[in-house]
Structures are given as C-alpha cells and as structure tokens.
Design a protein around this nucleic acid. Sequence first.
DNA 1: TCCAAGAATGTAAGCGCTTACATAATTTGA
DNA 2: TCAAATTATGTAAGCGCTTACATTCTTGGA
Lengths: 340, 340
Amino acid sequence: MKPDIPTLEDVAKEAGVSTATVSRCMNAPDQVSKNTREKVMKIIKKLGYTPNFGAQALAAKRTNTFGAIVPTMSNAIFAAGLQAFQEELGKQGATLLLASSGYDLEVEEKQIRSLVSRGADGLLLIGTQRSREIYRLLEDRRIPFVIAWNYKKHPTRSCVGFDNVAASYNLAKRALDLGHTKFAIISAPLEHNDRAEGRVIGIKKALEEESIDTGNLQIIESNYSIENGAESFEALMKSKSRPTIIMCGNDVLAAGAVKMAHKMGLSVPGDISITGFDDIELASVIEPSLATVHVPHKTMGRVAAEILLKKMENPEYHSNLKLDTRIIQGQSLAMPAKVE
Amino acid sequence: MKPDIPTLEDVAKEAGVSTATVSRCMNAPDQVSKNTREKVMKIIKKLGYTPNFGAQALAAKRTNTFGAIVPTMSNAIFAAGLQAFQEELGKQGATLLLASSGYDLEVEEKQIRSLVSRGADGLLLIGTQRSREIYRLLEDRRIPFVIAWNYKKHPTRSCVGFDNVAASYNLAKRALDLGHTKFAIISAPLEHNDRAEGRVIGIKKALEEESIDTGNLQIIESNYSIENGAESFEALMKSKSRPTIIMCGNDVLAAGAVKMAHKMGLSVPGDISITGFDDIELASVIEPSLATVHVPHKTMGRVAAEILLKKMENPEYHSNLKLDTRIIQGQSLAMPAKVE
DNA sequence: TCCAAGAATGTAAGCGCTTACATAATTTGA
DNA sequence: TCAAATTATGTAAGCGCTTACATTCTTGGA
C-alpha cells in the first residue's frame, strides 16, 4: 500500500473531464465554464490534490520560485532585508527558497547550482565575490540575479547596495576628527567577503589621509559572534600598544567588545571608544549606545525583489543602485582620554 | 535564440553513449567503467550540464530535499537550531528549503503545501498548532515530519522539544522563592503559539500554587521586537499597581524591558526584576545580565534532523524527545525591594 | 580454445503536468 | 432558422530524467 498521491488524472477521471480541463481550472480558470470549474474544484478539495511541482516545472518551464543565498542566518544582519525581499515577492505570488552558505564560496556555488537546477526563476546573492564560472552559468541560462549588500557599477549585472568603503571611511573620519590616532580593528574574516574588506579599506584610507601609518595597524579577524568580539577585544587591550579606539566590522563584534570592556573594568568611551557597523537592533540595547553605521536593510531587500521582477519581464533590464548609509552617533565613540 | 540549457541527451550525444549511462555516471558511478565515466564527466563539465530537478524528481520520486518552516527568521531564536538542523542534513547530502510563516497559520499551511508539492522528503515544523487537514495531508502522503520547540507526547507523531510550561513554572517558582508576589507578564502573542501559551501557563500555575490571584494578572501580548518590549514595559510600570517583577516570554522582549527601565531611571533588579526566556546571545550583552531559561537550540536542531532521517528509512519510526532546559541565574532577578 | 558468469551499456517505458491544436457545444445575428 | 463566430472541452505530444530489462562485451577457469 503506497502513499497513493492523487494526480491530475485521478481528479479528471473522478470529475469526468479531461486532464487538460483540470489543469486549466487551476492555471486559467476563466477559460473554463463556471459549472465544470466548480465541479472540478470540489473534487480537488475532496481528493486533497496538490500539483506535483516537478511535473509542473518540467512541463511549464517556469517555477515562480526565487532563490536567495545568504552567508549566514545566525544573525540579524540579513534577516530584515530578506524579510522585505520575501514580502515583495509574496505580493506577486512567488515563493522564496533560502539557503545559507556559511561564508564558504564553495558551498555557495553548490547552492547556486542546486537552486538553478531546482528551477529558480531568479536569484538574490550577497556580495560580488564568486567564481567566473558561476557568473557564466547564470548568464548563459539567462537567470536573472541581483547582488545586494555591496555596490559595484557593472555594465550588465544588477546590484543594490551601499558603499562599504565610503561608509567606513566616514566613520573613521569622524573618529579622527575627535582626535583619535591609535586605531585597531576587529573585522569579520576578510577572505571572500568584499563587504568586510571594504570596511577595512575605508578605515585605512581615512588614516592614510591623515598620514597615520597603517603598516602596523592591528587588525584581528574574527568570526561572527559576541564571544569572538569579546575575545578579540581582550587581546587588543592586552597588547603593548593599546589603541584608543577599536572599530568593529559589525555590531555583533562591537557588542562583544563592549561586553568585555565592562568585564575588564574599562569605561566606554572613557578609556576606549568602540564602533560597530550595520545598526541592527542589538545596537540599541548596548550601554553605552553604539556608534555605528545605519544600513538600509529593508530598502535593499525590497528593491532587490523589484529589480528581479523587472528582469523577469525584460531580460535586458539592469540597474546599479547605491543606497545611502548614515552614521549613528552613539555614545560609545568620543574624544580619546588626554595622554599626559 | 533561447537559453539552450544542455540536457542529459546533449551530454549523451556528445559523449557517444546512451542517456542511461550518463545518468548512471551521476547517480551510481561504480556501475560505469572508469573510462566512460571520465569521458562523460569531462563532457558534463564542458557543457556545464546541471540535472533538471523537476525531471529528476518526477522520474525518481524523491528529492533529497527537506523543508523547514519557522515562524520568523528575524531573530536568533530559531537560527541556531536551524543551523544545526541544516548541518546534520548536509552530512547526508540533503538540501534544506526554508520558509517563514510570520506566525500566521494560514501562511504556514500554504508553505507546507508548497514544500510538499515541491517534493520535500521531510519537514521540520515548529510547535503543534495547525489544522487537522494539514496533519492529514502529511500523514496520507507518508511525509515524515518532526515537530520541534515544543514537547507533546503523541503515539505516532515525532517531536523534539522541551516543556515550556515546566520551564516557565520553574523560573516563576524561583521568583516566588525570592519573595515576589506582584507579577506581570509581557508575552508574545498567544494565539496559535503553543510555546508562548505554555510559558504563560507555567507562570500562572506557580502563582496559583502560592494562592496568588491570577485573575487580574497583567499580561501584555507584544510582537517580537525590542521596541515592543520597551513599550509594554513602560505601560506596565505606569499602571497603578506596579509589579515587582516582569516576566517576559522571550529574551528580545526582556531586552526591550531592560532598555526602557534604564530610560525611565529604574534600577534592575533594584526597582524591578525582569526575566527572559530562550537564552539567545543577546541575553549575554544586557546589563545587568538577564535571568532567563536556557534552551538547547542546537541539540534540538540536530536531533530533529536525526529523527527525520530515521523516519526516511523506517516510516514506522517515531520518537517523542523531551530535552532539558535550565535556568540561567542572571542579575536581573533578585529579591523585591522591601515594602515599608 | 570455448563458454558461462559477470560487468558495461543500451532500449524504452513511464513519472505528472502543460499546451498547441482539433473538435464539440453554444451563442449570435440576419 | 441556420451558418458563422465564439466558447468549452478533449487529444496527445512532449518536458528531461530514472530504471527495469535486454543486449553486448569481458573475463577467467576448464
């Protein structure tokens, strides 16, 4: 005795019509007379019929499904944007398939292939760093995709993001204006992560403009967690040349840094200034409030969906959209203590 | 000029073999001679061939794909468990399809149907509350599913979770032992959420055992966000009969409460005790550290995957697993101030 | 050297659906 | 009232893959 899943044919037989009619009832109801439609619908409900997606995709060559691959789901960074992305797609009756790559390029590649072979009609990707072949795959198959969370002008590819370098540069500039000269950085792992990289570059650029040597600028790369942020902070503060400001690549690391500062009995910003990046909700519960960079997560998600839908209609369409960020002037960033 | 996606047949033709051989190269490599296998694999790479998932699912009647539907992705509650779930599945080469329902039962139902028709081999669901038809659908089709984040003994269905009522009861008991009598609750919306409901029930049970009237116990239902937690806290503290302790249904609401307490110039736990639930990372950055209930997220995710995989092999298999929670004795919970 | 057993490959029948096209039923206008 | 136009339904050819079964090619032992 097998599961015995009802098929189109079962419905057709039971309703005394052809499979074509049943199919039309579901996909083009107005091509069917009200009478038969109601009859068929009743049978569908009675039998608990659900179309077989594989067969449907195979026959119709489209799936009304979009895919998104984010580096991680373990934190709030992508969540808000993704939510907006999904909502926008939902309005069009489309479904979202979500996968996370754990910041691993190979995993991401596998998942892109998986989503593609699953028939995703379009893809949302984070950042620009991936192999040439993957781009070729996507472009050869005319699969619309949009890159988010980073901005990079490109003649054919679409993206919606912000300038990580500039945002970070501005925040560093602010710190310099306050009089800081001894910087340190706690960054997310830089490899294969153009966002993290950009943020570090922005800081360096600002420092170099002020002729501050970045040769021995301390940069700790640290995986995404409060605990790691705390450890990195401790390491930096125990080094011989203590910085007066530690700029973190994201709010989570900054939260860890602040936490450890308290634990070490250091005052923020009295003894040490700390900055974050992303402006996730977490930033708002930290004491003192975190100086960070606000990123338009929701807008990014929504616009990404819009671009994708436009590309569906017109494959030629593309758009490079740079969104604005703004500095959140939290209390964790202030003038350095006087050095006597 | 169409996308011109290579098919099995294209590969077969180019390699001078039959489609069956190519198919075997991918699914049962040891049935093919090394020679042909290598030849075929080269062509596959050259053509950039990717199997068509729909066709594959249609022909093979399995997808090696599992689905999970969580109420929300906007926070860390489900993230850690989901990550573990995915990792465990990944070991078996399976893929995870993720959807979020926004705590809406109808949306969840739609998504279950969507995942089912997409051919999910198994499903991870959160909580027990859903329509009878959905359970029937799943059971009629012999689709293995496992319910997580709540424990409920059941003769045929599988679950892995913890006892929300008992955990909450224990935490309330602790508060009672400290001398609290004036309680208030900030809960997640109770409708269609057996976890939230259980947590409230647990508190009530503890109170009733101490003959504290729960008839006019103040309960504010509040959507999941720090901001909402803060607002609810403010409302409670402005009411005529101030509680000495506010127990929150989750850590995020508790974080909002603590934040607002600071803003209102109230000392925690001096003026008011606050408790959370879930023990997400956020809880660790709050000052004072949050008294909360630790939930074994990762174990839950991992075990859920194990159960599902076992059910795949043996449809009769099922398991009701209750995991332990433990109280995190944070500083946000202490004796109430003396009433003079 | 020859033949049976085993390994490698090919053949072809679906899987459940959509849709172009053909046919049947109904409506319309004069 | 009847042919033409319109609407509703049926027929059947795939979509790209897997796999049972049939066929062909290798082996190795007698």
